[in-house]
Design a protein around this nucleic acid. Sequence first.
DNA 1: CGATATTTGATATGGTCCATAACAATTATC
DNA 2: GATAATTGTTATGGACCATATCAAATATCG
Lengths: 173, 173
Amino acid sequence: MTVSKTAEKSSEKPADPAKGRKDAAEPQAEALQLGELSEQLGYVLKRAQLKVFENFLRCMASLQLTPAQFSVLLLVEKNPGRNQTEIASTLGILRPNFVAMLDNLESRDLCARIRSTNDRRSHILVLTDKGKAVLARAKKLVATKHEARLNDLLGQANREALIGMLSKIANEF
Amino acid sequence: MTVSKTAEKSSEKPADPAKGRKDAAEPQAEALQLGELSEQLGYVLKRAQLKVFENFLRCMASLQLTPAQFSVLLLVEKNPGRNQTEIASTLGILRPNFVAMLDNLESRDLCARIRSTNDRRSHILVLTDKGKAVLARAKKLVATKHEARLNDLLGQANREALIGMLSKIANEF
DNA sequence: CGATATTTGATATGGTCCATAACAATTATC
DNA sequence: GATAATTGTTATGGACCATATCAAATATCG
C-alpha cells in the first residue's frame, strides 16, 4: 500500500487538511503555485511528451511496441532496402544503440537483416510479413486510440497547427 | 575525424553518389522518406523537445543550469518554505531522485535545506541570496535567448497557442 | 501513555536511454 | 597493394527514472 505499482505519481492523497489536529493555525497550505513554470516552453513540452508517450504505450500494449520501435517499423516500411546506419541516423539513433533495438525486433520476427550483395558490410533492413501485419495493426491502433484523442482534445484544425509548429521547432530551432 | 564531439548527428556527409564506381546502376538513393512519421504526434513532440532542451542548455551554459534545475529554482522561489516532497512531486520528480539534485544545488549555494521546526522530519527549501541572483539572471537569459526564439519562429500569437495546447495535453491527455 | 502505522529524507540498486571508444570485416582511396 | 574510411558490433560509462528499504520523526489509535 506504500505506492501503487507503476506510472502513478500524485493524485493519491491531497493530505486533506482541516482534519482536526491541534488547532486551526494553518488553514491553507495546499496546491503549490506553478508560477512562470506553466509558461516555460521546455517544461510544458516535456510534460506533454511524457503524457503522449504514456498514452502511446497504453494504446500499444497489445502489440508491445514502444514509440521508438514503431518509428523504426514505419521508416523501414517506407524505405525498404536501406541499411542500419541510414535508418538509425534518420531517427536520431546512434548506430551502437540501434543494434539492440534491431536484435529485439528481429527476435520477434518483425524485421530482418539481410547482407547486402553490393556492400557486404551493410545489413539491408526489411519488414517480415509478420512485421507488416503488426505494423498495419499498430497504425490502426495509433490512429484510432491515440491520434484521435488529439482531435477530441484540440479539434482537427488545432491538431494540424500543433503538429506543424512542433515540426518547425524540431527542424528550425 | 570519426565523428565530431557532441550533439552532432547527421548532416555530415550525404555520401554523395554518382561518384563513378563500377557502373551507373543506382542513380538515386539519397534522403530517406519520413512518410507518416512526420505526422506522428509523439515523434514530432520528442524531436521538438530535444531541440528545445538543447537550445536551453546552450543559453544557460554560462550559468550551468539544466532545465530540471531551473524548474526547481523557479518553483522554490514561487513557493518558499515547502519541503522536498512537495517540491519534487509537483515537478514529477521522485523523492529519491530529488536528493542528488538538491545536493548539487545546495553545494553550489543556490538553495538551502532547513530543518522545519513544525515537523523535524522535513527539510524546508529556500533560495539563497546567490540562488535568487542566479535565478534572476537565468530568467533573463531564458526570456532573451530562449523564449524569444519562439516568437521569432512562430510569432507571439502562435507561441501562446502552442503553450496552451501543450498545457492542455500535459493536463488532460 | 505506549504500540503501531505513516511520513520524510536518504541510500542502494536496477533498468533504460544516450554517448563514446574501440574492434573486425569489408570497401574505398591513393 | 598500403592506407584510410565505412558498417555493424561490443564494451562501457553517464544521465535519468523507478522501486525497495531504512532511520528518524510524527501521527494514529487502543
